[in-house]
């Protein structure tokens, strides 16, 4: 997928190894309204193949909405989403996975949750069972295999939904605040799973509010404010030397007074 030596992982640089990486997904002039309110306005961005892209911005900026649109769960009012050079490709979702802001686990055991996801992708029998056990083992969830998924702790549920998303070998993984409400150890476990997937070449698109996490994981960054892209570029540059007013305010932990949201 990309030639990347492991040492560059988590590098604090501007991800130079990706400078010439082609986009796997391109968003152009994306607009989405609901109830006469423009929620996303002319959003354009590139997700480079094999990169880790952060989507950041205040509550209600449209981050989750943008993920849903990129994943093809909802249709935009205007604009195009190009997957590997093909505009609005309907089959793209088969090669993508998404971890939602709130984990949606089936009312079944941990094992059965993974079994369902792999079954959808046509895996059967021993091949499937072996894959499930390996994935659970890698994520440190092996001892919970027979547990009903919905009695797991929040952190375990979040980890399980990440494992489920990765089990189907996606080319791109959308993550919507996967570590919100998690303790540092659970956060670290999730970040390790993300980095492992990234090292395998999986493109990562991550929504987060956590600046520490952004610095640890981010290569590219898209900052949304009131449904518009306020700033985009290498994560380290933006996080250390923001140019636009909304991002400056956000990095300093101030409320951006120019916001249309009107706090």
């Amino acid at each position: 997928m990309r030639d990347l030596s492991p040492e560059t992982e988590g590098s604090m640089s501007t991800a130079p190894h990706l400078a010439h990486s082609p986009p796997i997904l391109t968003v152009q002039d994306l607009t989405f309204s609901a109830q006469k309110t423009v929620l996303l306005n002319a959003v354009s961005l590139n997700i480079r193949e094999g990169s880790r892209t952060l989507i950041m911005g205040p509550n209600g900026a449209g981050k989750s909405l943008l993920l849903r649109l990129m994943h093809g769960l909802i249709k935009p009012d205007a604009g195009t989403i190009t997957w590997k050079g093909r505009a609005n490709a309907s089959e793209a979702r088969r090669f993508q996975s998404m971890v939602f802001q709130r984990p949606v686990l089936l009312r079944r055991s941990v094992f059965a949750n993974l079994s369902f996801a792999l079954g959808v992708h046509g895996l059967r029998g021993k091949l499937k069972a072996d894959k499930i056990r390996a994935a659970l083992h890698d994520a440190g969830l092996a001892h919970l295999e027979t547990r009903p998924a919905r009695v797991l702790s929040g952190g375990q549920q979040q980890r399980l939904s990440l494992v489920r998303a990765l089990a189907t070998d996606p080319e791109i993984l959308f993550l919507d605040e996967p570590t919100a409400n998690l303790d540092p150890a659970s956060t670290s476990a999730i970040e390790q799973l993300i980095m492992k997937a990234s090292a395998r070449g999986v493109t990562i698109v991550l929504v987060t509010h956590d600046q520490g996490q952004a610095k640890r994981l981010g290569e590219d960054l898209v900052f949304l404010q009131d449904g518009e892209v306020a700033e985009t570029g290498p994560a380290q540059t933006i996080l250390t030397a923001p140019q636009s007013e909304p991002v400056k305010a956000w990095v300093d932990g101030r409320i951006y007074l120019g916001s249309k949201a009107g706090y």
């Binding site: 979702r93 088969r94 998404m98 996801a117 959808v120």
Partner: peptide
């Protein structure tokens, strides 16, 4: 509760 998750996974109607 499940609709979006199923859509994301690409679950067919009968399944």
């Amino acid at each position: 509760e499940y609709a979006e998750q199923f859509a994301s996974m690409g679950v067919r109607a009968a399944d």
